[in-house]
Each structure stands twice: as C-alpha cells, then as structure tokens.
Amino acid sequence: MPGTSCKNCPLRKRSMFLPFTEEELAFMETFKTGELKVDPRTTILLEGSNSPQLYTVLDGMGTRYTTLENGKRQVINFLFPGDFAGLQAGIMGEMKHSVEASTHMTLCVFRRDDLWEVFRRYPERAYDLTWIGAVEEHFLGETIASLGQRDATQRIAWALVRIYERLKAAGLEKDGFVPLPFRQQDLADALGLSLVHTNKTLKALRDIGLAQWSEGQLELLKVEDLASLAMIDLERPQARPLM
C-alpha cells in the first residue's frame, strides 16, 4: 500500500521541519515506495545487515542500539517522528547498529538504490542528509560527554531535557506532557547506568519536583532547573530537514 502521500504528510505541517520545493516534493513522491507498519519490539534494521531500504519515522518511536559480545545492549539513541534510519547501510554497506520499534510504528519506505539520485539531482536534499549525519554526530558527542563527565543524576537530567525539547519541537507536547513510551531499562542502557540506579534517580527527581515520568508520559515541572542540574543550556528549536 502506498500509504500517506508526501503532499499530505502530517510531519510537513510541523514548524520544526524545513519546507520542500515543489520539485523536491514531486521527487519524494517517486522516491517513497510505500509504508511499513510494525508492532512494538519488531526489529526494523539489524546490525550487520545490508538493508535495501531507508526509512523515515512517520509515527511512533524506536531505539537504535548495538549488541556487545557479552550479549549486553548499548542504546545509542532514540527514534522520534521525522527521524531518518538506514543511512548507515546506504553509505557503509551494512548496518553497524540495530533499530527496534518501541511502540507501534509507521515508517515511510525508500529505495536505498535511489539515494544516489538524490545526490545527483537534488544537492540541497543531499546537503540535508549531511546535516542529519552531522546532528547525529553532535548528539553522540554530547552523549559521550555525559557518560564521561556527568554523574547519574546529571545524566538523567540531561537526557530528559533533550528528549522533552525534541518532542515538544515536533508538536507532541500537550498540557505540559510529552509521550515517552520507553522502558526505564532503555534509558539505563543509553546512559550506562543500572536499572536500580536509574529508578532511584528518577524517583529523586520526582520527589524534588523537577520531573515526572510515568505511564508513558514525561512532565518536566521545572525545565530550567533541570537543565541547570544537567549543566546544559536550553536550546532554541532548530528547523531540520525531513526526508
């Protein structure tokens, strides 16, 4: 099934995403081959695989992770609506991490072989892919700084602020809440913490009135204080490309 037309894409209505030209929109209609709907815990891309497809998250959320030789999992980051997945296999020949659905997800599907047509015909779109890669690199750098220089409370404060900012910019905030359907174990795996330590720290942040995460909803009660605790500045929402 072709699914949602690019012209009627609900993500394009959100202010955080840069607009398409009419020519780019017409190309995206041909670039997109359909939509994939998956259930929670479905593996979308597998580490070591050579997927022929690329994806944009239309709806739902997921995780990027890598598996170590001892079987432990390291969550790299989370996937939100508008995020692009599979570029790594398109450039490097195979995935260096896996992608799993955390919720029911709908993904726009693109042919990987057509990626080079983007570079040939639409250099602005190719630049957008470079921008996406650069932003992911920046985020990973910030993650490494958190793992190396922030204590457990600061790490969790940093993660909650950055996630909240991203989801709010995507128009998913309602009455002060954003959806956060991940498990505490996912957050622990992303931040290099034990589940017990993560649970205790989240409870402590709730008890002092800074943040509350329960039943798949996140509320930051004092976002500026939480950002100060995390030793970060609140960032102004930045318009980003949508593939």
Rank of each mutant, 00 (worst) to 15 (best):
C6W: 06
S15E: 06
P19S: 02
F20I: 00
F20G: 09
E23T: 11
L25A: 13
E35N: 10
K37I: 05
K37W: 04
E47F: 06
E47W: 05
D59E: 14
D59W: 07
G60A: 09
G62H: 06
L68K: 14
F80Q: 07
F80I: 02
P81M: 11
G86A: 09
G86L: 09
L87K: 08
L87D: 12
L87A: 12
Q88F: 13
G93C: 10
E100G: 08
F110G: 13
R112D: 13
R112V: 01
R112M: 13
E117F: 12
Y122F: 14
E124G: 13
D128E: 06
G133K: 00
V135P: 00
E137N: 05
F139A: 09
G141H: 03
E142Y: 02
I144N: 03
L147C: 10
G148Y: 04
W158S: 04
A159K: 02
L167N: 09
G171L: 05
K174F: 12
P181W: 03
F182Y: 15
R183K: 15
Q184P: 11
D186G: 13
G192I: 10
K200G: 09
T201H: 06
Q212M: 11
V223T: 05
A230Y: 01
I232Y: 05
E235G: 02
L242G: 03
